[in-house]
Design a protein around this nucleic acid. Structure first.
Lengths: 190, 190
DNA sequence: CATTTTTTGGAACGAAAAGTCTAGAAAAGA
DNA sequence: TCTTTTCTAGACTTTTCGTTCCAAAAAATG
């Protein structure tokens, strides 16, 4: 019983994520959200709580929609998957006229340290990605594509550092720099 | 003629930089600045203009105090200088209990794109660092420490990407990850 | 069809924001 | 020493912030 919502909460959350991603936490006002989400103030508060909770949920939504883990755990060559992922991400960055970068980095740079909940989310996000890299590298060793004396853990830490570096530089993208950096970084796997 | 300032503008600017670095642009209010700089509102506006101009000057001040260029152009082995710089920066990141990260990245993540003046400053900052890396790599080739068939430009782009990646991850520092990443990255120069 | 429950848009709230203004204090030059 | 000029502290203004409240509207149940 009772009236049903006129909107799809997940669609609205996705729109909120886009806005936060584009403008950052502090610079995005509730009025901005009202204007872009297509629903009223009261509906925002009733559905998502306050601004901070909404941002937190947007970050969770961002993490859920990230494809790194699935891309790296597909069957087939793990090394090829890593290479394809990095190249794909660089081209994505260069093609994005909005220059939004990585939502996790944007969050980290603006809100960390000092926000414990966001800190935990960002930490978890990066741990997830790093673990995916490490897992892929172990698979690569099993597949004989990575020498047994290489250290998957160290290489995983290296790869996420490079990936986040690329996303950091994405705010002022230079196609040659980003492609060169990717190529050099991947040569580590040869 | 006329009264003299009771404060040293550069000291105050440095303090403003510290505060912006710690809290970010939007989250730092003029009141915060008044409380921390030790001078009155009117003095802030009279000396530095509005908040945005003050932030811009703080960023310029940050760039001027950066030591990457001088560290990389010291006489002696250029490769050793690059290695020392990266290791030093990682230890600096790990030792910084404030977890402020890199002011340029923080600025880029929060204020770019959308602020043309800050964009130009961040772009110039990164170009300066990248150029310093490239110059050091050319010197390394001249010194016979880097093979002649390596591409200093591509390696320079790679090194700044790694450095900024390390700074991005500095918000949730993991000593093993950062040290591993640095070690792997520097193995490129072997 | 009526009742109940929840959503909805917009008005309203107090707090805090950025920036301005004014009165007085202090230093430099005559 | 007296005048002039600039600096300083804090009150003030206007706007915008995040959040709450309220009356009307609409869907689901009986």
């Amino acid at each position: 019983m009772g009236r049903t919502k006129e909107f799809d909460p997940d669609t609205v959350l996705r729109a909120a994520l886009d806005l936060f991603w584009h403008k950052g936490y502090e610079a995005t006002s509730i009025q901005d959200l009202v204007d872009h989400l297509g629903i009223g103030r009261a509906s925002i508060y009733a559905t998502f709580g306050n601004k901070h909770e909404l941002y937190l949920k947007a970050l969770q939504r961002y993490r859920e929609s990230d494809t790194v883990v699935s891309r790296l755990s597909q069957p087939g060559s793990a090394i090829a998957a890593i290479r394809a992922l990095l190249h794909e991400r660089v081209e994505e960055i260069l093609a994005d006229s909005d220059r939004k970068g990585c939502f996790a980095i944007n969050t980290a740079a603006e809100c960390l340290p000092g926000d414990d909940q966001l800190t935990r989310q960002v930490e978890a996000a990066w741990n997830t990605v790093e673990t995916a890299f490490i897992g892929a590298l172990y698979r690569a060793q099993a597949q004989g594509e990575l020498a047994a004396d290489r250290d998957p853990r160290a290489l995983g830490g290296f790869l996420i550092t490079v990936l986040e570096g690329l996303y950091a530089l994405a705010k002022v993208p230079d196609s040659q720099r980003l492609r060169d950096a990717t190529r050099v970084a991947l040569s580590i796997l040869d």
